[in-house]
Design a protein around this nucleic acid. Structure first.
Lengths: 339, 339
DNA sequence: CTGAAAGCGCTAACAG
DNA sequence: CTGTTAGCGCTTTCAG
């Protein structure tokens, strides 16, 4: 079985032109006479020639590869995001090299180092904490990076998230309008800006209404820990409403409430989540939640990244996209409520 | 901000050795004296040097990139699989370039063409149909491919799936043992070997017991269509058990039954799925289902692919991995049943 | 508009 | 074990 990798040189010979002519025909912004283009295209088609992207990358310095660092694929928000990210990038002529940053903490640095080895044109870090040392190395290597669904204090680095503070506030206002008196919160991983902002927006709005958190548990964005937190929270003096830092945990909370503790949702307790992943709309959960506008978040992320790839000197941007509260059946809806 | 891409030549100069010495130090199976290694490593560390993988790929002909074609990320089985795939490949020193084959039918060919442009060392096609023309082109290009969770009649191409026929049979036997009389089936997309095999195993076992399908609907692996199929199937003479071709649709079937039609699962009708995705274990569904052993499927896939990368002449292999029926609460369990 | 020539950063013979 | 020498396949000046 002969291995048939056709090079531009072979195409050139068959078309009776120089190798550089072939290159020009396949290089977007290049000039070639109609006749040359025709001859080359014909020869290329006959031979089944396609340019070698790696070779092109080497000389041009542009690989058209974007490194995507991602961690928790079990939370449905991420598969959805990577699908959209990948599709959009594909449209723009880029492709996504995936790097799992899972399990082993502290391996993020290694992962990014590996990414850099592939000469990626840019990096999207979804939901992972970035040491500033690390972002410096990317900077030094001239590789732009944008954080997806996580912000960094370090204002040197671009990030796009939903407006988590506003989201948290909306939930508080909704719950208060619903007449809830004892409001609990189940937190995500405290190292995450999304967690902190959601909680800050939530408790601030509570304070403004003269209320405070009735109970607080920590789920670390993990289902099992969220179950545990729910058990303790409902062991004594149970709340009449719980805001859970993301949908993924909210499902665990609802299941624990209904099937383990025998507590009715929403009649005995309202549950509200954050993300609006597809499962939230399924009748079994029918979860009231704040929608993270994945499409717009993805579009912004790609925009910023490509802009930076075009010109790395543009200032870092912090985008927060507002998302609506989606009213469903897991929480009591105040009469005449609209937002 | 200076862009600091260090080359092996610069390291060589600082270490006082030749450029090829540096290369050797960074090439796994190469020889260099202890002293040289030391000097080079030191200089490299000081400079922050890392080899350029693309350049290495060009000359060695090995990119250490695996192209992964994937379609429906909404079915949780796939995020899970790509996470495991990516992790395992990462361990072996490969990385995954993702290609979404979604929406647009017939774009698979274009997608694979693009993949080839990146000089990938191998391709994993998850759950996509492969035209034989296409697999020929990969063959011609010397790029091995293995199908994941889908088999092909074309025995020229390796594939790993669960044992779908056995799985279908297990479900039939289980349902029959449970005393069900009117057994329905909701099919996936008929173009998929997984769908066909599951159904074949299922109906064959039914026949052996002197039974036949009471009703049949088509869900095409989509939730909405599965809902529709459920509605028609239960409009008249409803079955007392339904086998659904995958979990993703089974959730939709259960929700339609319970929340739209007001039919009790499992008391009025048993529902069984296929895959055992994480959600199947959540209390809200607690779905009885055939487990696809993702870990072993992934391990086999990677094994075969890497073996082929090592030597493309080895024969194509078709692996079917047996998975257990996981008994949960969505289907009546016959007394004393164990399998 | 076109061809010749010079590399991109690295690995792989090849002598020494 | 080491340095020298060729390229991998392509883009990009540079003359013409």
């Amino acid at each position: 079985m002969a291995i048939a990798k056709i090079t531009s040189l072979e195409v050139a010979r068959r078309a009776g032109v120089s190798q550089s002519a072939v290159s020009r025909v396949f290089t977007p912004g290049a000039s070639a006479s109609k006749k040359t283009v025709e001859k080359v295209k014909k020869a290329a088609a006959e031979l089944g020639y396609r340019p070698n992207i790696l070779a092109r990358a080497m000389v041009s310095g542009k690989s058209r590869i974007i490194g995507l660092v991602v961690a928790y694929l079990e939370n449905q928000f991420y598969p959805e995001a990577i699908e959209k990210l990948s599709n959009l990038l594909q449209e723009k002529g880029y492709h996504v090299l995936i790097f799992m940053a899972s399990q082993t903490a502290g391996n993020i640095d290694d992962v990014v180092a590996e990414i850099l080895d592939y000469q990626v044109d840019g990096i999207i870090a979804a939901s992972v904490a970035m040491s500033s040392d690390l972002s410096n190395r990317c900077q030094a290597a001239g590789v732009p990076m944008v954080l997806f669904n996580r912000a960094q204090n370090d204002s040197q680095i671009s990030a796009v998230t939903s407006d988590n503070i506003a989201g948290g506030r909306k939930v508080a206002e909704f719950l208060i309008a619903g007449g809830h008196q004892k409001i609990g919160y189940i937190a995500g991983w405290e190292g995450a800006s999304t967690q902190r902002d959601r909680e800050a927006g939530f408790t601030t709005a509570l304070s403004k209404a003269g209320m405070s958190l009735h109970a607080r548990g920590i789920g670390n964005f993990m289902m099992e820990e969220a179950c545990e937190a729910t058990r303790s929270m409902f062991a004594t003096d149970p709340p009449d409403a719980v805001f859970v830092a993301n949908d993924h945990m909210a499902f665990a909370v609802m299941d624990t409430l209904r099937f383990e503790l025998g507590i009715d949702v929403p009649n005995s307790v309202s549950v509200v989540g954050y993300d609006d992943v597809p499962v939230a709309a399924w009748p079994a959960y029918n979860l009231t939640t704040v929608r993270q506008p994945a499409n717009r978040m993805v579009a912004e992320t790609v925009d910023i990244l490509l802009a930076k790839i075009g010109n790395n000197d543009i200032a870092p941007r912090l985008i927060e996209i507002d998302g609506p509260l989606i009213l469903r059946g897991s929480a009591r809806i105040p009469e005449g409520y609209d937002k």
